[in-house]
């Protein structure tokens, strides 16, 4: 086999490897929330952390997978027909607002459940109108384990 031919084969192999890597990166799956383990925390504690020291809470919880336990205040559907579960905190009208990836059936109001999801952070409400903000959890699943 000539040197030229060998070089050609090597180049083709490198290109094929590069194309495969690019393809895999491009189709990289989203974080597998359902099977992942999250940080265990209560809704009231999580909310208080964001209210009392937002910088610290952001480092500790934002974009992390959390397993949040709390009392169900409300179950509803958003405009995309995804289920929303509001978990109570110690502040009236303030919730850990969970948008579910997979319908959790119909959790009973005031029952204590755990939702696993990615924490996107806290959005303040409006002090003038007495509307407190929420801490948000996205891509959530009901934890049955």
């Amino acid at each position: 086999m000539g040197k030229r031919r060998l070089l050609l084969i090597v180049i083709i192999l490198i290109l094929a490897a590069a194309a495969t890597i690019a393809y895999l990166l491009w189709n990289k799956p989203h974080k597998d929330v359902k099977e992942a383990k999250g940080i265990r925390i209560t809704a009231a504690y999580l909310y208080n952390q964001y209210i009392s020291d937002s910088a610290k809470a952001r480092t500790a919880y934002t974009d992390k997978i959390l397993e949040v336990t709390g009392e169900v205040a409300r179950v509803a559907l958003n405009q995309q027909d995804q289920q929303i579960v509001l978990l109570k905190t110690n502040t009236a009208d303030a919730f850990v607002n969970c948008t579910l990836e997979e319908n959790a059936g119909s959790p009973k109001l005031n029952s204590t459940i755990t939702i696993k999801g990615i924490c996107s952070g806290y959005i303040g409400g409006d002090a003038d109108m007495g509307l407190p903000g929420d801490v948000f959890l996205i891509r959530g699943y009901l934890n049955t384990k």
């Binding site: 491009w26 990289k28 989203h30 996107s120 952070g121 409006d126 948000f136 996205i138």
Partner: peptide, 16 residues
């Protein structure tokens, strides 16, 4: 009227 959102809560089809 006011609107506010967290940028990291946007969900795309592709993770990348």
């Amino acid at each position: 009227m006011q609107f506010s959102l967290l940028n990291n809560a946007f969900h795309f089809k592709k993770a990348l």
